[in-house]
């Protein structure tokens, strides 16, 4: 596998995405709303309900999980376009007739969805940390973020969740012929990740080093499995002859 060729594919897809302003708006809007909305919600809880420092800390801890959910949601916007979009634009046939292998194409398209999604997640996390500390610092008594758990989420779990979502979405994109179907099916990736978030919010799962290690190991195993599954299910002929 020639990595430089995957990077060429990724660069081209990034260039194409950069011209799709509605995708860009979606990519920016979701992290912006969550990163601003969640700290503001906490501030309102403090102001109106007089939430205690402990309650605020528990919520801050749970909200940090959103940075596992976010990088798994954002790729659905871009990765669902990967092969379906190319098919709709009829640019897939010339691309498939180049020497790029299935693995190189999948990796390139995956990178193109992964990088902006992770970047948007990090920018959102930056805004979240600053706002959360500003709005809750007085009640908690110290700047809650950054802490080791959030760093582990951003450095390990978020990229793994993003890879998981990218792989699922790129794979779906190569198997279905309709952009809406790709996006709708792609959202299914949120079921396991969303489940984690619900467990965190309901205090069944707390944000600790051990729980993060388990979640990360699970995601890493899934990522590896999906890469090979994606290569195995990628069929140039099916894409060209069975899509209408």
């Amino acid at each position: 596998m020639k990595l430089w060729r995957s990077w060429v594919v990724a660069q081209n897809d990034l260039d194409v995405f950069a011209h799709k302003k509605y995708s860009l708006y979606s990519l920016v809007a979701l992290p912006a709303v969550l990163s601003v909305g969640l700290p503001v919600m906490l501030w309102l809880l403090i102001q109106r309900n007089n939430a205690s420092a402990l309650e605020v800390e528990v919520l801050l801890n749970a909200f940090a999980f959103i940075f596992i959910v976010l990088p798994s949601l954002l790729p659905t916007i871009l990765a669902s376009y990967s092969f379906v979009g190319e098919k709709l634009d009829r640019s897939l046939e010339p691309l498939l007739s180049t020497p790029a292998t299935d693995g190189e194409l999948l990796l390139g398209k995956g990178l193109a969805a992964f990088l902006p999604s992770l970047l948007a997640t990090y920018l959102g996390a930056g805004v979240f940390v600053v706002l959360a500390d500003q709005l809750t610092g007085a009640r908690v008594g110290f700047a809650y973020f950054p802490n080791a758990e959030l760093e582990a989420i951003l450095m390990v779990a978020a990229p793994l969740a993003c890879i998981f979502s990218v792989e699922v979405n790129v794979m779906i994109s190569s198997l279905v012929s309709d952009l809406r179907a790709a996006q709708q099916l792609g959202v299914l990736v949120l079921v396991p990740i969303g489940g984690l978030y619900v467990l965190a919010e309901t205090n069944f799962l707390s944000l600790s080093g051990v729980s993060l290690l388990v979640v990360s190991a699970f995601l890493a195993a899934l990522d590896l499995l999906l890469f090979f599954l994606g290569r195995g299910t990628f069929r140039r002929e099916k894409i060209l002859t069975e899509w209408k």
Binding site: V8, D15, D89, S97, T98, P99
Partner: peptide
């Protein structure tokens, strides 16, 4: 080989040069 399919299949938002350059790069 070089292939021209039935439909041009270009990246409509990209320039003529970028469309051609992409394939030059992908062929190394």
């Amino acid at each position: 080989i070089g292939v021209l399919p039935e439909s041009a299949g270009l990246y409509e938002d990209l320039s003529a040069r970028k469309n051609v350059e992409y394939y030059g790069k992908i062929h190394g």
